[in-house]
Amino acid sequence: MARSIVDIAVAAATKGNASRIVRVNVLAGQLRGIIPAQLIFCFGLMSENTIASGAHLNLEITPLIGRCRKCEEDFPVEDYSYFCPRCQGQDIDIVSGTELRVRDIEAE
């Protein structure tokens, strides 16, 4: 994962004609169970000798949000309980909380 983040960031910076990456902003859904300290540590290792070396990896943990297919209510899923608080529906789509995405980078 850390290597993928470095690869994606370096490719984006190269495409944007940047020569050094300062910060990488990653959206990490709550359900992915990312441990920030561990991923940041691995990112540091994987970015050595690349233009992302020394960049700050910022992990934004996004909460688990469900959407009821019956009444279209959006609600935070707490305690992993997939029940609509409005209509008690059980047919729930996850609209946020499973993503793992490089949102943007800051480079110079």
């Binding site: 994962m1 993928s4 983040i5 690869d7 994606i8 960031a9 984006a12 910076a13 495409k15 944007g16 940047a18 990653v26 993503e99 793992l100 995405r101 490089v102 949102r103 943007d104 980078i105 800051e106 480079a107 110079e108």
Partner: peptide, 14 residues
């Protein structure tokens, strides 16, 4: 400068 990316980390795998 800020560069928008919006790429899934596991995109290569997927």
């Amino acid at each position: 400068m800020k560069i928008n990316v919006m790429t899934d980390v596991l995109e290569a795998n997927d």
